[in-house]
Nucleic acid binder design. Structure first.
Lengths: 204, 204
DNA sequence: TTCGTCCTGACACATTTGTGCCAAAATCAT
DNA sequence: ATGATTTTGGCACAAATGTGTCAGGACGAA
């Protein structure tokens, strides 16, 4: 894992472009100001970005690659809770906001590039750039929406429907994740997912 | 279900007090301005506040009572997805934000009182009262935190642990909800919850 | 009180899911 | 290309969960 200071890289431009897209009211100066303390991290496949138990002092935005966030139980079994593809924030929201240790480990499934901002930098931005509050609200709203849909699907759909939906909703993501990684995300064991796949392949 | 216009009732004061508590920067004038278009709804036990399939034109804040939000499947089976106790917003965030039909029905488990605000009123507040953006962000962040914890508990805890946690985390809520209502919230059938209760009662 | 309704725990049985293991197939690095 | 590693599907068996039903008890309304 190598890290370098902001040298106005291509990666940082991608991140700023995303911010502008979500909240067009932000001016170039404001964005330039925000970009000052950003850093970039380059990660290889299987590299760990956040270790569980560790307090996240900075937030990260995934510019390129794919990361899985998993929980480890008492018997060292891993369960994938989230997959983070490019153009999403890659940290544990709940624990990040409360400055508590992350319950999950974030590991690269592909070589990845992350743009980082220190926690205090975010708070400074909220205070100094009023319009940044709006950006924050929109990001969190979007995240809440996705989480809510996933939570509800876990409660009122069965594993077969969830698999079917995942394949159709995120076909490009599905093709980058293997069955072993996918099963815990869907809330079942690998053998069950195998059975589901078998059943669905007969039908179509 | 009876509704009346804002007459600066006690209920509205409770709601405004909550807003002030979350975002103390908001002035009395700003709050007074926001309170103008609020209405109050009084609901009896079993009354429906939101019917699934219906677009929510206004948001509601539950001042008193208890509401369940449930999903109905093709065979008319109901599954409770959320319980909303007093001092929480009572609408479906994801669909409300997108002006889409609510996938859930909101029904009172107890006599309830809701303070309502029209959707446009919220957007106006965001535009006219900059500090309101912060309030919005904080509310959504808090909601996201709760949702995220619940989603994760569904993925890496078993039903027994979820039941145990629920009883300990929300003892006052637990005492107001019966087993039949609780089971789908925890993601299991009633029979399974009965087994869990039986097992736990032997242990303690 | 009395009636009716709702809630709960229980049971038997069917079905689904999990566990542990193995071998074939695919993938990766050298 | 070759060997090592990972991924996958399959099997047998165990365990957990769901389904349908029932009766006793709690609760509320008249």
């Amino acid at each position: 894992m190598s890290k370098e200071l902001n040298q106005d890289t291509e990666e940082i431009q991608i991140y700023l472009k995303h911010i502008k897209q979500v909240c067009s009211e932000l001016t170039e100066e404001e964005l330039a100001k925000f970009s000052e303390k950003l850093t970039v991290t380059y990660l290889a496949k299987n590299d760990i970005y956040i270790t569980s138990g560790q307090i996240q002092k900075q937030g990260g935005y995934l510019v390129k690659g794919l990361i899985r966030a998993f929980h480890t139980d008492d018997f060292a079994n891993e369960k994938n809770i989230y997959f983070i593809p490019e153009n999403e924030y890659t940290f544990h929201y709940a624990s990040f906001m409360d400055k508590k240790p992350s319950p999950l480990t974030f590991q690269c499934l592909e070589p990845s590039i992350v743009v980082n901002f220190p926690m205090e930098h975010l708070h400074t931005a909220y205070l100094q750039i009023p319009k940044f509050e709006k950006y924050g609200r929109l990001i969190v709203e979007a995240k809440l929406k996705v989480q809510q849909e996933r939570l509800e699907s876990l409660l009122f759909q069965n594993a077969e429907q969830r698999y079917f939906d995942f394949v159709n909703q995120y076909p490009q993501l599905f093709n980058r994740i293997n069955v072993s990684q996918l099963c815990s995300y869907l809330g079942v064991e690998r053998q069950t997912l195998t059975r589901i796949r078998k059943k669905l392949s007969r039908v179509k």
